[in-house]
Design a binder for these strands. Structure first.
Lengths: 362, 362
DNA sequence: CCCCTTGCCGAAACCGGTTTCGGAAATTTG
DNA sequence: CAAATTTCCGAAACCGGTTTCGGCAAGGGG
């Protein structure tokens, strides 16, 4: 840290070397018309004198502030909230590799988000943006695409024109989960979709259906619950699925938080999670490890996602084509206690639920 | 969002008004030597043409980028991790009130943190910093103080020279908790301190001791467990306290995560949380609401803290004295199920624990 | 030996704002 | 009505870098 008012400028550095600032600048930025000897001499002096160019002074000519923009929508149901620290760590570390930083803002609505994206890009607080939690139809994407502002999606979307992205293959996870449950003997497998309008909801649902198809199981609308993204909705949806004439013996949840509610619903039917009813979910939130039994779920490496997104965005800003900047990763299955072999047929399960229910009413 | 290459500069704006850019600049920045009529005319045109000054172009002359710096240490035991989203939302909203933004970085160690603080301040990616989770002796503070870089603490510290801060009075919470437990009949009240070296640990311990003193209870070193900041440590520490000849009938935990472990320890002694042993903790993490019974704890309004810190830092950067920028808030007690009336004397509790233990061994 | 490259660096323009300074016009004062 | 202020705006310097352009000197080829 420099003493107050003692910062060394490029002029100071140049003077101390007997060069002009233009030479120094070119030496530091690896221009080819600077001799190797001079380049080394300049680098050394810069390091000794602890010279660091002011990023905004550079930006005025280069047009780049070397900053990634991220606008978080906090009102939103936030499955990713628990991962936020990791996500941000991933982004900042990925950014640091290229000497970039992260500029963060929070918004309360989509309209507010777009307002901030415009403001931040016009004031050049950021050179481009990472858009988390993409929708099938995403107004943020339209706005940025329209304004020719570089961006990268965390997730995919419907209209992929000009879009770069990193995403986790949630559809693959759901498909595998169905296969696993089928292997364990389950024949009626329920499904709770995620948030309305999100792209991931569509993909995970497709994965579930594809899994059924591959297992040779027929689709049954009665097995697909309403959207559920939190504890309450998860509990309600699960209860609805269980109180049917042919209830599922296993339920697949698009998000962990819904699964937490599913636990409650299953218990209040007098059943045990992982025994009479199996649960597999997706996300890998920390609460899952506190549950009893621990939640079997597909965990996402959010930190790695952040790092990849940073890398992709920087390359996008530097001019690479969006089409060449698209990556997909996989979730990792945490095989824990909330799922197991199918113990009862659907009919027996229905009978048991009815029995317990009648018993309670007496 | 502007079409590509179509951004309006201050010169464009000036030309369209028949003025010079110096006049326009002063009009927009409320200089007194601009007539009211001109000021309005300029403002109106700026708004119509959607003019937004480039922040880095402003910064080159003003020296300020209007950005708050925050370096998070991710390796650290992270009690604040669950609150991160709220904390960041608070900061960014507080910053937005003055048209500032947040620049975020993450570090893996204290040394790394200091390196980043220096780098960010020297490159002027930020005008000042918020330092979360303060230590009694904090190298970050030394570095920034030494470099005359503005900063604000989230927490307090030992050497308060040049320090501004916002903090929650954890000591008051602990003191109140002791009073509450005393009122419920508890006479032997245990305590688990928090992380080693943190300033909050000292304060909360003092609060606990002060609570004892005010209740007329004597201090007993056997009632103070080892530091505990996570589930495992909380479980170990609690077990140690309970397996004594005169165990506590209530335990106060400095952090919620330790309390989560305490639940396990109490259960494995064959006891029930909130019945034979009461627990009160501090933080208000979301996991506390998932526990059974729900955790009684002092919740911190992290979002508000963030907003206050942003406000204080901005005023600090603008030159207000550190001494005038010190605020303390209070935690809010969540009266839930993990504490209740004292049911057993310490001796009876010890006997019960021994009984259950012997029973298990057979 | 001369000309033509090539290598290397200095001079100066430039980026888009802010701020200082000076002066003309309008207004007030004597 | 002249003189002294005010009011208000233009001209130009400035901030700290980057980038373009031009030219000198050394080296190579004919």
């Amino acid at each position: 840290m420099n003493a107050i008012g003692k910062r060394t400028t490029i002029d100071d550095l140049a003077k101390s070397l007997g060069l002009t600032k233009s030479t120094v600048s070119r030496a530091l930025n690896d221009y080819p018309d600077i001799s190797e000897a001079t380049r080394l001499r300049v680098r050394h002096a810069a390091s000794v004198q602890n010279y660091r160019p002011l990023s905004h002074a550079q930006a005025i000519k280069t047009g780049r502030v070397r900053s990634i923009g991220l606008v978080l929508q906090v009102s939103e149901h936030d499955g990713h909230r628990p991962f936020l620290a990791n996500f941000l760590a991933g982004i900042t570390e990925g950014a640091a590799l290229h000497d970039w930083t992260l500029t963060l803002a929070t918004a309360s609505s989509t309209t507010d988000t777009i307002r901030l994206l415009e403001k931040l890009s016009q004031e050049r607080k950021a050179d481009g943006f990472i858009l988390p939690r993409t929708y099938l139809q995403d107004r943020r994407i339209d706005a940025l695409r329209n304004g020719h502002v570089p961006f990268v999606l965390y997730g995919r979307t419907e209209d992929i024109a000009e879009c770069a992205w990193y995403d986790i293959a949630g559809e693959t996870a759901m498909q595998e989960a169905v296969a696993e449950l089928f292997r364990l003997g389950h024949r009626r497998i329920g499904f709770l979709p995620g948030g309305e309008g999100y792209n991931y909801t569509k993909l995970r649902t497709e994965g579930y259906l594809e899994g059924l198809a591959q297992a040779g199981l027929s689709q049954d609308p009665a097995l697909i619950g309403p959207n559920a993204v939190n504890k309450q909705q998860g509990a309600d949806a699960t209860q609805k699925l269980l109180l049917q004439s042919e209830p599922p013996t296993a339920i697949l949840c698009s998000v962990d938080h819904a699964a937490i509610g599913a636990y409650d619903a299953i218990r209040s039917c007098g059943l045990e999670v992982g025994k009479e009813v199996s649960i597999i979910a997706y996300d890998g939130v920390p609460e899952g490890a506190v549950l009893n039994p621990q939640l079997s779920t597909y965990a996402v490496d959010t930190k790695h996602a952040g790092a990849r997104l940073a890398e992709l965005l920087i390359r996008r800003v530097r001019g690479e084509a969006a089409q060449t900047l698209r990556e997909i990763g996989n979730a990792r299955f945490l095989d824990r206690g909330s799922h197991g072999p199918c113990l009862l047929t659907s009919n027996d399960l229905a009978a048991l639920i009815k029995l317990k229910s009648d018993h309670r009413e007496e």
